[in-house]
Nucleic acid binder design. Structure first.
Lengths: 174, 174
DNA sequence: TACTACGTTTAGTAATTACTAAACACTCAT
DNA sequence: ATGAGTGTTTAGTAATTACTAAACGTAGTA
């Protein structure tokens, strides 16, 4: 007896929910994406409600987050005032979109604060062993952040990240 | 009047706490790492207690997590039964260590569950339009995961990730 | 053996985050 | 205008997670 398609979908949704949680997102977010990802047609809010057993409110807010990250797209049909959503299927595009989104985020604010620490120290230099030690360490972290930042900018700049570029990278690392 | 070193350290600790939270770790974890990172000498649990204003219990558990991730190292002095901790300062090494750690994690369990979904479908093939559609999508996600996995394995395999490799990658992406 | 100095575990609490239910606001059709 | 069908916001609740305080375990020392 072969497992039903609904059963299989459920498993998949569950899997993505856990992945979502692992990355610090609400598990509902993973579930919403999964449902959209497995749907051949765009879905309306109420259809998502039915499939996920979350409330409209929750979905409304979480799907906007997903849209901001470029993981889902909103569309509408003529003569129908419902919004429809579908999943981004190009994950490399999604990564690039995520990296872009990141730039205005809390993360960059924190990273900038490290940079400011560094600048404060440069502007108020003190001849002192520990001062110098702390300076070196903060500087090293800053350099690391800069490298990561260059990488992420490079990825954003690409037309497409795509599997071919991944293979190029693999080539270089060999 | 130049800002005191303690003031500067506090700012830095705060910054790393936020970064830690952003990545879904407890902010205390970031604080602990920051304190160790700015310390010229390894610190004992009690010294960390003093610097972070967390309790020993919390630090005990969180520092073990940090050690598992390779972000801090435990050591001991002869004739002293305290444990001492110091921060990993090679962030590229830390990344590789994190990727390794990831492999036994909840994340890979979830990723594997997607793979299993795929295999179940292959084993119980049904001639049906939607079935096929779902199969294609699950397959595409699996392929993406595989690519990421190759990348991460390649990085783990390197002796050192280092800035030079980052530059190589940047070169390829240009 | 018992005492001391440590790290760990545990049981409970505080803080945060995800979610629900229901009020709200807008748009379109009548 | 009014009402029906939308998405959004809000206020409160449930669930989760981070943390504390204190008991516990262990190893070394007297």
């Amino acid at each position: 007896m072969s497992p039903s398609l609904t059963r299989i979908k459920q498993e998949f949704v569950q899997g993505l929910s856990q992945i979502s949680r692992f990355w610090g997102f609400p598990k509902g977010m993973g579930a919403i994406f999964a449902v959209l990802y497995l749907s051949p047609t765009p879905l309306s809010l109420d259809e998502i409600v039915r499939e996920t057993e979350l409330t409209k409110g929750a979905i409304s807010t979480e799907i906007r987050a997903l849209a901001r990250m470029g993981l889902v797209h909103r569309s509408s049909k003529l003569g129908d005032r419902k919004d429809y959503y579908e999943a981004e299927t190009d994950f490399y595009a999604a990564i690039r979109s995520l990296l872009k989104e990141r730039q205005n985020s809390e993360f960059d604010r924190a990273v900038r604060s490290v940079k400011e620490t560094l600048e404060t120290m440069q502007a108020n230099w003190v001849e002192d062993e520990e001062w110098q030690f702390v300076y070196e360490r903060v500087k090293a972290l800053q350099d690391f952040f800069d490298a990561i930042d260059s990488l992420s900018r490079a990825v954003i700049r690409l037309e497409r990240l795509g599997i071919t570029n991944v293979q190029k990278i693999l080539g270089v690392l060999k």
